[in-house]
Amino acid sequence: MPRQRRGLRARPRRHSAPVPWPSNPVSRFSRHYFYFHFTNQPYPEDRKGCYLCFRVERTQGGLSSEVGSGVFENEFYPKEPVHAEICFLNWFKAQPAFQAQRLAPEEKYQVTWFMSWSPCFQCARQVAKFLRDHTSVQLSILAARLYYPRRPQYQQGLRSLQGAGAHVAVMTPADFASCWEMFVDDHKKRFWYWKGIYINSCSLAKSLEDILGQGVFC
């Protein structure tokens, strides 16, 4: 068996999930991870983990600058599991720019998440509380798929995010392409729109419309 080059991940076998990566967050991930985890089939097999691609921008005095970007994965080891959303909040609250916000209340933060699954209700509750406590943070959540969309507590979690000021939406084909360009290692290769990407996006958007009570047009 040929040795795998350090820092690269082997292409996952068909119908099997790629092995976890060693660090959290990473700056980019492979196209195989992207296609495997960000497919917008409503109920794909073996996609138990959640991947969160983030970008944070700070605005002060009319000037905008990037605070950071990268990809978080659910942490399952070595201690208690931590979902990707909470990994992000822990990372974000540790950033010097955010900690210094008390000295510069005019600063605003625009946070964008591209997620393979929408947040579970426990994470939604924590994120909503964070947004209510930090009104200078504006969060946009773009999800490839909806996590247990028929369960009332998960529906309420999404509504709580919206009530806390978050923009919650389903990823469109254009969003998938943007995520590819920003977070995939070999993004210079052409992004291939998979079969059903548009229909699935519209179907999921309509499901989210029913949950949030907003009009969505495809």
Rank of each mutant, 00 (worst) to 15 (best):
W91R: 11
V71S: 04
Q122S: 04
Q122W: 09
E107W: 02
R102M: 03
E107D: 11
A94V: 03
F130K: 14
E66C: 14
K79Y: 11
Y109K: 03
E85Y: 13
R55H: 12
T112R: 12
L89F: 02
Q95D: 06
E73F: 11
F130H: 15
Q41R: 11
N40T: 02
L103K: 11
F121A: 07
F114Y: 06
F130I: 05
S64T: 12
P119F: 03
V127M: 09
P105K: 12
A94I: 03
P42S: 08
G49Y: 13
R132D: 08
E106F: 15
F92D: 15
P44S: 01
C53W: 00
S64F: 02
F114A: 10
G68F: 03
R47G: 02
Y43L: 10
C120T: 04
C50K: 09
C120Q: 00
F72M: 10
L131D: 08
Q99N: 05
S65L: 02
V82N: 07
Q122I: 08
E73M: 11
I86F: 02
T59E: 15
E66A: 11
Q110K: 14
L63V: 13
E80V: 05
A94Q: 09
T59A: 15
K48H: 12
Q101V: 10
M115P: 03
V56N: 13
P78E: 00
V82D: 07
K108A: 14
Q95C: 13
E45W: 05
L103F: 12
Q126E: 07
K48G: 04
S69Q: 07
V67A: 06
E66Q: 08
F72E: 08
F92E: 15
R55Y: 10
E45G: 02
Q122F: 12
S116I: 01
A104C: 10
L89Q: 09
P105Q: 10
C120I: 01
K79W: 11
E57S: 08
Q99G: 06
E106M: 14
K129S: 15
G62E: 04
S64E: 08
A97H: 01
D46Y: 05
V56T: 12
F54W: 10
R47F: 00
F72V: 04
Y109S: 05
A84C: 14
S118N: 05
V67T: 10
C53N: 02
K108C: 13
Y51N: 01
V127G: 07
Y109E: 10
P119W: 02
Q126V: 04
R58N: 02
Q41W: 01
R58Y: 00
N90S: 10
F88C: 14
E80S: 10
Q110I: 05
V82L: 11
N74S: 14
L103D: 13
Q60P: 01
A104G: 04
K129M: 13
K129H: 09
C87K: 13
K93H: 06
A124C: 07
C50D: 05
N74C: 15
N40K: 05
F121N: 08
E85R: 14
R47Y: 00
V67G: 06
P119C: 05
E107Y: 01
V67L: 10
G68C: 09
L89N: 05
Y51Q: 02
F114I: 07
E85V: 15
E75A: 15
C120E: 09
L103Q: 11
W117D: 04
N40M: 03
S65K: 05
Q101A: 13
G49C: 05
R125G: 09
Q41L: 06
A128I: 04
Q60M: 10
V82K: 13
R102I: 04
Q99P: 12
E66H: 02
V127R: 03
W113R: 07
